[in-house]
Design a protein around this nucleic acid. Structure first.
Lengths: 153, 153
DNA sequence: CCAGTTTCGATGCACTTGCATCAATTTCGT
DNA sequence: ACGAAATTGATGCAAGTGCATCGAAACTGG
């Protein structure tokens, strides 16, 4: 440590600690949330995200969803397939591009998302809300936002 | 909504934002780190964690490792199997419990972990270090530590 | 000491993910 | 307008994950 000709950019202790805790906090918090959803007989969080995004933005093409959710293309392709099979999404022909289609929630899909929210919300409270103050949550959001993006190439 | 007898503990905006950004920051940062490792022809992060834990603590039994890394039992069982097959870990008979065994890094395993570190460290710097100050990193670590645990039943 | 219970670690099976690649379009350069 | 290149979304196959369950060894109360 304290190498004057520092060529090796090893992160400081504080940075390493922040990294380690990011992994752990995510693992623990997400684990709790997914458990609550599963125990309530509801679909996984991923499904919620897709449904919410489509309710907010209206019908989208898979590629756009992919950009929003940062999922690999093949992964999203099959996720949508499963959700369509489950009757939560429907595909619509795409007016100006015959390669693709639009995806939109069905009535049933909206219902499922709505039923997921109370459970999801309670779990967020349990995983995060009970552990940090309002003020701390805002700080946390700011700092994590820095790490989350914006991406530079 | 606006139910006067609010039984439903929907988290505040700040909490929800912190949650959303936790997911996103993790996804982005981990994605970057895993990409750097893979591009360097190195094993996944998980393997590093196992190797590091065993170098720090000495040979451990799978169950102990499981507790440290918070991995599901069946998942760890197969992870160790793969690492043994890859020649990075070896199993040793366990003196006082014939059901299990001890796992320890091989010489080759230690070498792999050592070669992973520079790449890993640089990636942590890129994903986290370049985006927050020293002081902010410490704050972040503190807040995330709150979320990461300690678990109450 | 012995049956019943608990803990440890492995595994069969179904499902999901990662990777490479494909076919069908659309877009671009000329 | 035409052929080359890029984009969109799907898919075969190998590998990883989740769940339930298993056999084996270790504890436990009587």
């Amino acid at each position: 440590m304290s190498n004057p000709t520092r060529i090796d950019p090893t992160p400081s202790e504080a940075i390493q600690m922040a990294w380690a805790r990011l992994l752990r906090a995510h693992q623990v918090a997400l684990g709790l949330v997914e458990t609550r959803l599963k125990d309530a007989g509801l679909p996984a969080l991923e499904w919620y995200d897709v449904l919410l995004e489509l309710e907010r933005q209206g019908p989208l093409r898979p590629r756009q969803l992919q950009a929003e959710l940062l999922l690999p293309q093949y992964n999203l392709s099959r996720l949508l397939e499963r959700m369509v099979d489950a009757g939560l999404l429907e595909r619509r022909p795409c007016p100006d591009d015959a390669r693709g289609h639009l995806v939109a929630p069905t009535r049933r899909g909206r219902g499922v998302r709505r039923r997921m929210w109370p459970v999801y919300a309670a779990a967020i409270g349990e995983a995060v809300g009970e552990r940090v103050s309002e003020r701390e949550a805002a700080q946390l959001a700011e700092l994590l936002g820095r790490i989350a993006g914006p991406r530079r190439t």
